[in-house]
């Protein structure tokens, strides 16, 4: 399974692997927002946690259809399914690879983007922590969506339609935690809820992803 993870990471790093695309997309979103709402610092500071969370979520969404579709097209998925690896493990590794190549860079870069959005000083640590806790859930839920739509040609739009409603709880608790942090309020409750969602999703959703993948392969 480690071999699968290493292969996916290596593929992402090689030409055309799409590593960094999410980050660039995140930067563009953060750049465009002030053009849309005006450059007033107070307003930007107030909406910063929400915009940063939304940007991270959309950046994640952007690369979801690559998680399984490429392996489906070239037949690797058939071969992986007949290999000794359990499908549950395969989808977990796929989600982990997606998180390392998309989610983790967003978490690391988020303080820089927060500067652009004039986030108040108290908000940095909660923002980074909320993204660190929340982005794994985004990757795992996204992998479920990718597994559902893997057999559909041009399933990208459908994938978004299926995955975005599933992102609602994660977004609410993540953005709430970042917002409370920026206002200097107590972040414990949303943090625990966010961590709970991530843990639950990581523990349970791979079984659903593997089940739908098995259906799609037959």
């Amino acid at each position: 399974m480690i071999a699968l993870l290493m292969r996916d990471l290596r593929l992402a790093m090689r030409a055309g692997g799409g590593f960094g695309l999410g980050l660039a997309f995140f930067l563009i979103v953060v750049t465009l927002v002030p053009f849309g709402v005006g450059p007033e610092t107070g307003l930007l500071a107030r909406i910063a946690p929400g915009i940063l969370w939304l940007g991270a979520l959309l950046a994640c969404l952007l690369s979801l259809d690559r998680i399984l579709a490429l392996d489906w097209e070239d037949g690797s998925l058939d071969l992986l399914a007949t290999s000794p690896l359990p499908l549950e493990g395969i989808v977990t590794m796929k989600a982990l690879a997606h998180w390392i190549t998309t989610g983790l860079p967003l978490v690391i870069a988020s303080p820089l983007f927060a500067v652009l959005m004039s986030l108040p000083g108290a908000g940095y640590a909660p923002l980074v922590l909320s993204l660190l806790l929340g982005t794994p859930a985004l990757s795992v839920i996204g992998t479920f969506g990718a597994a559902l739509t893997v057999g559909i040609k041009r399933g990208g739009l459908l994938l978004s339609l299926l995955v975005l409603p599933l992102y609602v709880p994660t977004l609410i608790f993540g953005a709430e935690m970042a917002r409370r942090g920026a206002e200097g309020a107590d972040t414990t409750t949303p943090m625990l809820m966010l961590a709970g969602i991530s843990a639950g999703v990581i523990a349970l959703l791979p079984f659903a992803s593997a089940a739908v993948l098995r259906v799609n392969l037959r």
Partner: peptide
């Protein structure tokens, strides 16, 4: 295939719909 996939989506969606309900109340 469609029946299987939508059935799983309905199950998973139900859990997330409930979660969303509580999340929205909290929000």
């Amino acid at each position: 295939t469609a029946a299987d996939l939508t059935a799983v989506l309905c199950l998973v969606g139900s859990v997330f719909a409930l979660l969303s309900r509580y999340a929205v109340n909290f929000w």
